[in-house]
Nucleic acid binder design. Structure first.
Lengths: 185, 185
DNA sequence: ACCTTTGTGGAGTGATTAGTCAATCTGAAT
DNA sequence: ATTCAGATTGACTAATCACTCCACAAAGGT
């Protein structure tokens, strides 16, 4: 496996377990099975690595979420697919999800590059369309997105903390979407 | 002012601005206007301080929230008072709120003492009563609490990021409660 | 074969930091 | 006045950590 990816994997594991300041770069290199210098070959600084890991996760999540949405779908269907895909991904990649949360409530948020923030635009546009079609009754759009996101985080955390069968999980995901949807329509 | 409180104040300010690993204890002592040794007189370790600050904030929030709830109130009224008080407090103490979030999504969560977790019991009991009275239609109770909390965090963050008049804020608080309430009933 | 670029290693370093300690101060009780 | 426990100080230290540096290896490109 690619050493660069090994470094990201190791960083994800250690950062979520011990926090940013609790994991020295030397431990990351060790866990990844590479030399100390190799880490700094790929990432100029520790902060660089922290941000790159965030960007990598966000991109993977973003890709997964948009995957099977068709433009012909109704706002409801699109929103449901977004929500379900994101939540399902969060369940299957709980470390990644926790990392995003940890990152988002740390001072590193200020360092998020502009182009990453643009990923939200797809969702924002969907919400705006919903508002225009008078299906979504809450506004403005970024407020709806905030409600949507925090709901997603909350449900994800709940599911991850309460181990249950995959079937039960699916049911939770589906039902919880209906809850947010009911809330904003 | 009490030196111990000065230390907590300084820690809050610096931790939220630079993160746990980004703020050395020496800077905290300096900001608090005390000597390095004084900090360690009150808190054996840095971790101790981090946890004590969390406990202090949680306690203050907890006190403020329960304040004007009367047992005679209906579940709806009690829930609304809880929600409104917490959110209002979060708006007026945004640093504290951000700290709690930062703490909660860090590895320090694992170190939260048992007695602090019990603060949730009041809310949990209220929700259980709501479920029993068939007013709240979602269960289990801790799931409802998770939905409630994440909603609260989301709205708080939105309000803090979008500066608006106090009147507009109050309106947001009131309306956002109706949204969650609609969701779970 | 020769050169250039890129990747890899790991010992080394300067700066930083959590935490200690012994000395002094404060104030209240006897 | 004397005592004594807690508060306060800041210089000190042992350890750690982010990052550098240089040597070497691999992989092409010509």
């Amino acid at each position: 496996m690619d050493k660069q990816k090994e470094i990201l994997n190791a960083a994800l594991k250690l950062f979520t377990e011990y926090g940013f300041h609790g994991t020295p770069t030397s431990k990351i290199a060790q866990e990844a099975g590479v030399a100390n210098g190799t880490l700094f070959h790929y990432y100029k600084t520790k902060d660089d690595l922290i941000i790159a890991l965030y960007a990598d996760i966000k991109q993977r999540l973003g890709f997964c979420v948009v995957q099977d949405v068709k433009p012909a779908d109704s706002v409801y269907e699109q929103a449901k697919k977004f929500y379900t895909a994101a939540l399902q991904w969060g369940i299957e990649n709980s470390l990644e999800f926790r990392y995003v949360q940890q990152f988002a409530s740390s001072p590193y948020v200020a360092m998020i590059p502009e182009e990453l923030k643009e990923q939200n635009n797809i969702t924002i546009n969907l919400i705006k369309q919903g508002i225009k079609e008078k299906i979504i009754k809450v506004s403005p759009a970024d407020y709806v997105l905030a409600l949507f996101s925090s709901h997603l985080y909350g449900v994800n955390q709940y599911i991850n903390e309460h181990k249950m069968s995959a079937a039960k999980q699916k049911q939770f995901v589906a039902e919880s979407f209906e809850l947010v949807w009911k809330m904003i329509t």
